[in-house]
Write a protein that binds this DNA or RNA. Structure first.
Lengths: 115, 115
DNA sequence: GCATAATACTTTGCAATGCATAGTATTATG
DNA sequence: CATAATACTATGCATTGCAAAGTATTATGC
């Protein structure tokens, strides 16, 4: 397989798990948000992701009990949105995941410096 | 599913892709190495991984053309080892992956700081 | 010398998830 | 009223970390 293809595949793989951490961070900061807004937030910070990635992701996180969710119809009319926010579990998980992420960072830094 | 279980699963997922970056870094620093030594190196930097993870990983990276490989019998006797080192492709990939990793770091930092 | 341990790698099957693509439903616009 | 925009859902695929068991070669202890 050619170089750019394997790299593209690696890119997708490298996002596994990381996206959960990002979503938890977004909802922690915003308090509450919904699919499209989260999608746009990802784009704003230079990490565009696929619709077909985010929506199932939010659903899984909800089913795992990391998020709570409710349908909200905007007061000014507009399409109803499914709002999400951190559950107690999600609130507990966020710093744990951050620790893991930073620990991995340190491990990598060590590897780059090892004999 | 209970909290600790979903967290454990996330842990495994979050290593996808990351381990390739680590292996490339190790081989970049060491010049050459083999399975068990790489395994021990991971452990030394506080990132223990499974045998059944590493060996297939090295094989895939080799098949993808990221690594070169040769069987080496230690001069003082001992079990023959399969040595690996970076190929030209691997040498090119390492900084690319590092860039991606750091770019993700920045994105996450922004997410944690966003309104 | 022979059984056991240590070293080193291989193989198989499973579960989880990012992506691509297509589909559905509701609201806004001309 | 038709078309576009907003917002979410559903399906199938490929990839990979892990667990567990297996294979083969070399070293060690009695």
């Amino acid at each position: 397989m050619d170089k750019s293809t394997t790299y593209q595949k690696w890119l997708a793989q490298s996002r596994k798990g990381f996206l959960e951490l990002c979503v938890l961070s977004i909802l922690h900061r915003k308090g509450t948000s919904y699919g499209l807004e989260v999608l746009q937030t990802f784009e704003q910070v230079g990490l565009p992701i696929n619709e077909g990635t985010l929506y199932p992701l939010l659903n899984r996180m909800f089913k795992n009990g990391w998020l709570t969710s409710e349908w909200v119809t905007p007061s000014d009319g507009g399409h109803p949105r499914r709002h999400y926010q951190l559950s107690d579990v999600g609130t507990e998980l966020l710093p744990q995941m951050l620790d893991t992420y930073r620990s991995n960072q340190k491990s990598l830094a060590q590897l780059m410096d090892i004999k």
